[in-house]
Design a protein around this nucleic acid. Structure first.
Lengths: 343, 343
DNA sequence: ATCGCTTCCCAAAGCGCTTTGGATTTGGCA
DNA sequence: TGCCAAATCCAAAGCGCTTTGGGAAGCGAT
């Protein structure tokens, strides 16, 4: 069923039917109702493709998922973020198109999406420090919104980020207040902006309390369970082992806990952990009581929100870019406790 | 830059330029070369939208992601599966469009994708037993491929599945061979077809060894860490506790391990675990030595493969639907050991 | 009646591509 | 030299929609 058939069916012109369906004021309420009912009855929905051709808008947003081809790593937060963004899109009549791309070809994909007018805008995932994608997108004039930020850029653009620095500063302070003096960090890859900021927050808390910053207990890598495990294991086996960890993800924290327990130590007593928790649906941090003390911020909500910001920007191109900084909440669980006394 | 401009630029007709670029034989090699170079120079790439309108093909595949609106649960395998499928699509010039949808509105989304001709086919995720989506898609004539299968349907369609029954039969037998007599299962939601099949495999192994099938040690639910933990905890605290678990996912297994260790028991000695492992990139089952004994099958590879099967089917609509059954490999890790002696 | 507004509707052009059905040129061969 | 097929190219229609630029009623006021 297409417009032509539908309008013939109704004895109206295509113009009128189109206007009736798109809420233009030039048609009477009676006609509009009649049209809407016929559309529903015939299960008609307009072809996005034709609509896009006619209007110049694609009614689609692109998500370019970089997959590091070295590690074939897919970011675990991706599913939940997409789910959140998808809710917004479907509510506003947009489609989501995904491109999975190894991180070297990203620029080309943006060019192509833009020149083919395949999308009205894109969401940039996993910004790195001074990320070149941002300048590139500004150059080719494709609207975009960044999940996170890129330090070292002075231009303004639309982004939504968690206050990573503050979150890790608070996490570290929380441990310091419990008497911990030797606190390790198990961080994500520090070319990633979020990881850089978290480390800064960690360092700042240590510095403010006159505690030394020791590279020996600062690890960074791809945030897998194994990475969390190996990092924690190595540091715990060292003399001068830390009494506490801050972790960049629940997955890492699970690995760290494995290392702790493998050593016969008790988490929350001998060794404390504070982790960041993205509130992933399949990795809830406990049901009622949090397992881990955590700085928590829902990545799904971030997806919902960032998609809105992008759509708003596309709707009003002249309005200035929006930014939004979410504060993570600190939830106290059973993975932390007072620093063990030295005997 | 569009076709019209490009052809004006070259002093050729749109027809010729279009043919030159699409490899039709009616243009001379010299012209073709000239056209191709001009296209590259002007960074021209045709609008998918217009192309689709003209040809009737969308050059896009839809993935409809059902999100149970009760639990807001996103399947953790989703990211890796998509990454695999995305590789295939970009290699073959297709786009991937995602619709996130609560599980009640799925049928409508298929209708809409189909009637708007937004996609040339769809991938069906998470089939349930006797899944109604399959008949529906057949009815509306939208090509599709299923990740998994739906028991209780006699029609044939394209699918790719892991031999879940066999995998769990082997897992259970492996434990039986180690002397375990009381083996629990922590399964996914058993409306899901894969979970149903896994339970059948588990039961069949028990039955073949004259072991009783006891509903008290058979749990099924959404496969979160917490679910794994709570299930294992409850069963371990029971008298007549199991000495071994088979788990449907690594995430559950992590929860089960937590319960085991919380009770001061040692995994692989007091209690054994065999889990299914989807080989997710961020949840590797150990680096060198597997942590968990596991039945392993890469979900990413499944994505790659299933996308190929769907594209092939779209290219040759008359050829019969393909099926592919992957065998999971059993990898022995350190989570299993001989059944503890009763004293 | 006539005029001037609304109100409601329509015909047709155009978005960027493919494809049909020729038109023109070229080259081989008698 | 003339003819025919092959090789090249082109104009125009059409895919399903939006939108411009009207036109025809309907109605109260003159």
């Amino acid at each position: 069923m297409n417009l032509k058939e539908l309008s013939k069916n109704l004895g109206l012109s295509q113009t009128t039917v189109s206007r009736a369906l798109n809420g233009y004021p030039e048609v009477s309420d009676a006609t509009r109702l009649r049209v809407q009912e016929a559309a529903k009855a015939h299960n008609y929905s307009p072809s996005n493709r034709a609509k896009g051709l006619a209007t110049g808008r694609a009614l689609a947003i692109g998500h370019v998922i970089p997959v590091s081809n070295r590690h074939e790593m897919v970011n675990p937060i991706f599913g939940d973020f997409i789910a959140g963004a998808g809710e917004t899109y479907s509510r506003r009549g947009y489609e989501m198109v995904l491109s999975v791309v190894d991180d070297e070809n990203e620029h080309k994909v943006y060019e192509s999406l833009s020149s083919r007018r395949a999308v009205d805008g894109v969401v940039v995932h996993g910004p790195r420090m001074g990320d070149s994608r941002i300048a590139h997108l500004q150059k080719i004039g494709l609207p975009f919104a960044v999940h996170g930020r890129a330090s070292g850029l002075d231009s303004t653009y639309t982004w939504l980020d968690v206050n990573n620095r503050r979150a890790f500063e608070r996490a570290t302070n929380f441990l310091i207040d419990l008497g911990h003096r030797r606190i390790a960090i198990i961080n994500g890859l520090e070319v990633m902006d979020f990881a850089y900021r978290r480390r800064e927050g960690y360092k700042s808390a240590l510095g403010a309390n006159d505690l030394p910053i020791d590279p020996k207990i600062m690890r960074s890598g791809e945030m897998t369970e194994v990475f969390g495990y190996e990092s924690a294991r190595d540091m715990l086996d060292d003399d001068d082992a830390p009494t506490a960890f801050v972790c960049s993800s629940l997955v890492c924290a699970l690995g760290a806990r494995r290392a702790i327990e493998e050593r016969g130590l008790v988490m929350g007593k001998d060794v404390s952990i504070v982790t960041h928790d993205d509130a992933l649906s399949y990795l809830q941090n406990g049901r009622d009581v949090p397992i881990f003390t955590a700085t928590r911020s829902s990545v799904r909500e971030a997806g919902r929100r960032l998609a809105q910001m992008l759509l708003d920007q596309i709707a009003n191109p002249q309005s200035p870019p929006q930014q939004e900084l979410l504060e993570a909440e600190l939830m106290v669980g059973s993975s932390t406790g007072p620093a063990p006394r030295k005997d």
